Simulated assay, not measured.
Amino acid sequence: MLSRIAESLYWIGRYVERAEDTSRIVDVHLTLLLDDPWAPEDVVCASLLSAMGHEPAETVRRDEVLQALVWDASTPASVVGSIGAARENGRRSREVVSSELWESINVTWHEASRPGRRAYPHPFLTWVRERTAAFNGVADGTLSRDEAWHFLVLGRSIERADMIARLAAARALAGTAGPSWVTLLQSCGAYQAFLRSARGAIDERRAAEFLLLDPLFPRSLMSALVVAEKSLDKLALQHGVDDRTTTRQAHRVLGMIRSELEFAPPAELLEDVYQVMERVQSACSVASDAIAQRYFPRSVVTSWMAS
């Protein structure tokens, strides 16, 4: 597979997942402000922007969060920007993605760009989650389980791990002003699965452990890291045995942070959630750079100069 196609598929997976997860994170924080009139708006909004990589001003309001994280089409860090970036990468890989997959992302982009969407942020964020779920369903049903599929899943898994870490970090940073762990489960569509797993024993510690450590729920942090490692294994096998050594850096950093989560006592992990989630985000960044260096090398541009 051409490196440019592989790179496009990897980033389609990342951008679609980013759009979904950002919509979840923003929605749960805005719902908190509506449900709790005593929640300090500036603290909640500032912690959310900080967790998402923005430098908040002294006083941050709801509209500023929506503009930066939802509506700003000029940056792939926002919901609309992520959808646009995913569409552009889909256009570059038309010879590999199915027509149904392209139509799904293309229609989503055009609908998301309609000016009327801005008037109804909560319905829009819900709609984004529905559209990204439809995209992933089309991808599951129309792509062969070859390199294209593994690059898409690899991108999706690394982005999911990074965004879950951001969600947990935002909660830890906001402290008592932030949403509860049970609320975070609801924002991730994990609440019903958690109830079955906990057998009705609902408390904050169990909810946090489920979101971060559960090996069976697909949107847990542990599951995302495991799937990313498996995708790297599949790609290494398809590129030959020697390729395992060239992807060792990505394997190493993802394996180290997964092992830390897997074997650390849950009580110690939950006492230091913010610092652990910072290490998860760092590991995802290092792994992404290692993957890019191995599979998406940039051509050297020859500079012609007159003597």
Rank of each mutant, 00 (worst) to 15 (best):
S50Q: 13
G81C: 08
T183K: 13
G84C: 02
W181D: 15
F124D: 07
S8D: 14
T31N: 13
A134T: 08
A264M: 09
V227I: 13
A6E: 03
E64L: 06
L48D: 10
F135Q: 06
E159D: 08
P266D: 08
D72Q: 10
I105N: 06
R91W: 02
S50F: 09
D42Q: 14
L66N: 15
D272N: 14
Y120P: 01
P265L: 03
D242V: 11
D140Q: 12
R252S: 13
A207R: 10
R171D: 06
A85Y: 00
L235A: 06
R118Y: 04
M222V: 05
L269P: 03
R14D: 07
R117Y: 07
S303H: 15
L237D: 08
R117A: 05
T183C: 06
E20N: 15
P218I: 09
R166F: 07
L143Y: 06
R205L: 11
T31E: 15
L9W: 03
G137H: 08
N136F: 10
V96L: 09
A73P: 03
V226D: 12
S82V: 04
T108L: 10
E209V: 01
R252C: 03
F263V: 09
S288W: 11
G155N: 03
Q249F: 03
L254A: 06
F135N: 12
E17K: 12
A19W: 03
D162Y: 11
S303P: 02
F210C: 07
A165V: 09
E55G: 04
D140K: 11
A148P: 02
A57H: 09
A177C: 02
R62A: 04
E147V: 11
G200K: 14
D242W: 13
L9V: 10
R4W: 02
A306L: 14
C188I: 01
M305E: 14
A161C: 02
R145S: 03
A68I: 04
L237K: 14
W181P: 04
V138L: 05
A86R: 00
N136G: 06
S50V: 10
H150N: 07
P40V: 01
H54E: 15
E58T: 14
